[in-house]
Design a protein around this nucleic acid. Structure first.
Lengths: 113, 113
DNA sequence: CCAATGCTAAAGTGTTTGCTTGACTATTGG
DNA sequence: CCAATAGTCAAGCAAACACTTTAGCATTGG
């Protein structure tokens, strides 16, 4: 049960890190309503297309989006299944916390303060 | 519906960023099984207590943990409710994506390729 | 054919992050 | 009382991040 520094980076690192940026979350929100090209995704952002593409690379590296190129257009698609690990981690925390609360409650019932 | 750069940082930024670090996730995991002091939380980590406390500050700033000091020991407690926004954001994405799939499916039913 | 479009690749820059070290303060057990 | 314990504070540093600019290279519409 000891925490050990591992050389393999946990996929959760990449997923949560990808979601930590509001611009990237915006792109995922846009993509979860349907696929879009890089240029389309750049609409409504003040930053350059270059910056947008760099964000998209981060998202793709995390598995949250995929892309394929047809002609000169690269189309991005949301991969909501990739959110699974993050969702599960969060739910596990909540479960563990409630388990702890229940344990405490039972303890107080047996021997009140 | 335009994306606008706001000066107020979205709380989701801090939450997801806090969860992006494996050391911090480890601390939250530990804390969701019950409160612990800074020194206890430092057990099993190769880094210094100073570094651990800095991680705990990030967690506290995100709202994922709270702390109070009694004597010389500061005790940290998990705040699983703070995970709510993150959980909701993820669920919203999945919902939006399925909505889009359904729309597409219906379209194909009406006019096959 | 060729100019506009859509993207890619690389280099440079300022800011943020994740640490360490060292010095210091407050509590507490014996 | 006083040494060990628990934490705090600030400085410093290397690596990672979020961009920009510049220079390309295919694809495509007219």
């Amino acid at each position: 049960m000891l925490e050990q520094s591992s050389s393999t980076p946990d996929p959760l690192d990449r997923i949560f890190a990808a979601l930590a940026d509001p611009a990237r979350r915006g792109m995922v929100e846009r993509l979860s309503r349907g696929p879009a090209s890089a240029t389309e995704l750049a609409q409504g952002h003040t930053m350059t297309l270059s910056a947008v593409v760099q964000h998209l690379k981060v998202l793709e590296a995390s598995g949250l989006v995929t892309s394929h190129k047809t002609g000169r257009v690269r189309t991005f698609t949301a991969e909501p299944e990739a959110l699974g690990p993050a969702q599960r981690w969060i739910e596990d925390r909540k479960r563990a916390w409630h388990r702890d609360l229940d344990r405490l409650e039972e303890l107080l019932r047996k021997s009140p303060p």
